[in-house]
Structure formats: C-alpha cells, structure tokens
Write a protein that binds this DNA or RNA. Structure first.
Lengths: 212, 212
DNA sequence: AATTCCAGAGAACAGTTGTTAACTGCATGG
DNA sequence: CCATGCAGTTAACAACTGTTCTCTGGAATT
C-alpha cells in the first residue's frame, strides 16, 4: 500500500516536518495560542506564505502535533497495562516506561500537558479524543485481568480514566524534574518515581477491595 | 488594622480590579501568554499606559490572578477534608462543594487549569506553590483522622497530593460539563459527579488497606 | 491656602502580525 | 519533449503590539 513518494512529495513532507519541529521547539516557552505563523516559518527558514501550503492556521498545526505526540502511543499503552508479572512489578515497569518516554520526548509531553486545557479549542478536543481512546484501551486490557472479574464495564472505565490521568500527572512531574538545575536532577526523578509508585500501589489496593 | 482607604487609593483599587476582571474574561478563549496589555486596557476602557500603574506585565497580572483564584480557598479546603460524617458522606459533600465552586467561579477554575502547565513561568510557579500549600493542609487534616494511625508523614503527603490532583481533575471536568449545549448540562454534571465519587471511593478503599 | 504627588491620558516610536496577490522554477504526467 | 501542477518566494497592506515621554487634573499633605 505504501508508495515511495516522488521527489516532490518527499520535499513537501520534509518542510512540513520542519515546521512541526520548529513549532514544538518554540512551544517550550509559550502556549499555542500565542504562537505566530511567521515565528515558525522564520525558525525554519522559509517564507511566511509557505506555511499555508501545509496548514490552514497555527491551530491546525497544533492538531497535527497532537497526532504526532499521542498517535503512536497506543500500542505502548496496551502492552504496558497488560503484560506479565505481579502488580508491584507492573507498576515499576509502567513508571519506568513513563520516565523514559518523558526523557526521550520532553517537548511532546510538555505540549500535551500545556494544551490539554489550553486556549485553542480544536487542539483541546483532539487531545481529549486521544485520551478517551487511551482510556478505552486501558479498560479493554483491565477487563482481561482476572482481578476484574465481576466488575461492570462502567466501573472498569472509571478506573481506566483514573489510571490515564495518573499517568499524565506523573509524566508532567517527570518533566518538571527534568528541567531546572542539572545538579540534583536524578534525585528529583527518583523522588517523583517513588511517590508515583506508591500512589499507583494505593489505587491498586483500592481496586482489589472494590467488590468487598 | 484595616484603615479606610482615601478616595485616591479606592479608585486605584477599583481600576486594578477592573483590569483583573477584564483579563479573566479575555482568558476564556486564549492563554495568558497571548494576552496583550492593550487588549486588557481596551476592554476596561482606560489608556494602555494606565496598565503600568498596576502591573509590570501581563505575567505579573497573571500572578495576581492566581492569588485571587486560589488564595481564598484555603479555609474551604481544610473544613472540607476534615468535617464529620462517614467516608461516603464526606465524599459526596466534597464533590458537591467542587461542583458549586465551579458553577460560581468558572473563569477562575479555567484560568488555573489552563495556566498550571501554561507558557508563563512565574504563573506556573505561583500555582505550584498554592497547590503545594493545599497538599500540606490536606495532609494536616488527614493526620488528625484516626484512619491515619501508623501512617508516615511521607505517605500522608503522597495521599494528599493524590487528593489535590483528583480535585483539580474533577473541577476541570465539571467545567467541561458547564460549557457546551445547555440542553443536557445537568445530566453531564451528574455523570461527572458519579464518576468522581466512585474514583474517590476507590482511593478511599486503598487508603483503608494501606497498612495491610 | 499652597504645594506635592500620582493615576490616568495622549501621542508617537519601531517592530510585529496574518493575509492577499502575482511570481518563479522545477518535478511530474501525457 | 512539452504542458501542467504546485511548493515556495517576493512584495505589499492595514492592523496591531509593548514601551517611552510628556502632560493634566484632582486628591493628599503640609
């Protein structure tokens, strides 16, 4: 199905990606609603009007960034929530994975945290949709777990949302730990991991006694 | 201690409040990092230069808004987390209180949710500090509860953070329910309350079995 | 009553913004 | 090989931004 693109299409995609990358960089110090189209094209080194060949507006670009930041994360979620090992092991693994993701893609994480409640409606909606998909997928995986026997679909989804929100909060805290003085960075990261682990453990406890 | 202000000071405070109110209104459809000083003064009906008599910048105004939105909330937090009644009753009461607060001060809630991870550093810090204070206060109240016997300070604070984050998430969901078509608003609000109640209940269960 | 203070007004500045129109040059498909 | 398509350029526009300096009227102080 995948057709090798011509020189033309390839160059276009390259410019498009450059615009996305430049925007993501600029968004580390501001919100999407203040990001100017000229600012982005200037950073890339193309004429302002070239922007319109790829996006209708910066809001449109924002929606594309949501797809880039969250779209490829769905398989990751599934394999993380399910997987083998006892509860404690799974928690450690999940948090380790979040930490690695934040380390690898800090700008993406920052963008999602920032624009989830940000000033640009279409972007908020795009993020909400993706997170809803995540919650649904987490629910599906939870349903497979023997611990979930006797749970209603409704209760599974409520727990899934709790997990998703908790993951986002943890990611945001890892991000905070990442910036700031290099000096005690590792220690700050360990502290975030320590607290997040215990919070997940407590939620897990609540889960095991839900049907009491 | 309170001295009745002269005509002069009174008028100044009035203008200052008008600037804060206008800004809060404008921030319903954008982020602080894109809020212009001229935009605010235009909405109030004063000259752009008048702005500088009250704030150094829009970031400075943002910090003042954080104080306005969260500063007066501390007593409310304390009496909510403690209070009498069994766990179930307390949860219902807390969520009811959040719903009423969002109904009464939607713009404040939106501002905090938006700028907590927003593009203006001093504002993010101001919010982080206030939420830290909340967490500390919640911990203090939790410590008084007989259920917390045998808990370490550290574990109490970890639980307090979980509660504070959960409250913010719930507030943000109530806000989402508030906007949109009037038609099914009440039903959306009930659904948010229903899910949030069960999430709090689950966390409460985890809390009771923490020392097993 | 005379003097000081200061919140707000007014005008001007250099720089920025989004959007339009008409263009150029090169990859593409017939 | 030639005609078409289209990514990116150039130039220009009206509107807007934050900040400066100077000024004014009336409250506050003496």
């Amino acid at each position: 199905m995948s057709h090798t693109l011509g020189i033309r299409q390839a160059q276009k995609q390259k410019t498009r990606q450059a615009l996305l990358d430049a925007a993501l960089g600029l968004l580390e110090e501001q919100s999407l609603s203040s990001l100017g189209l000229r600012e982005v094209t200037r950073a890339v080194g193309v004429a302002p009007t070239a922007f319109y060949r790829h996006f209708r507006s910066t809001a449109d670009l924002g929606v594309a960034l949501v797809e880039e930041a969250l779209g490829s994360l769905h398989p990751m979620i599934r394999t993380t929530v399910s997987g083998t090992g006892d509860q404690e092991e799974r928690i450690t693994r999940a948090i380790e994975l979040i930490a690695r993701h934040v380390d690898g893609y800090p700008a993406h994480v920052r963008f999602i945290a920032r624009e989830r409640h940000g000033g640009v409606q279409p972007v908020r909606e795009a993020i909400r949709d993706q997170l809803s998909r995540f919650a649904g997928e987490v629910r599906d995986e939870l349903a497979k777990d023997p611990v979930s026997e006797g749970w209603s679909e409704d209760d599974l989804l409520m727990l899934a949302h709790l997990y998703v929100d908790q993951m986002l909060i943890t990611a945001s805290l890892f991000l905070e730990a990442l910036e700031g003085p290099e000096e005690a960075r590792e220690e700050r990261e360990r502290e975030v991991a320590r607290v997040a682990t215990r919070q997940m453990r407590l939620i897990g406890l609540g889960r095991h006694h839900w049907l009491d």
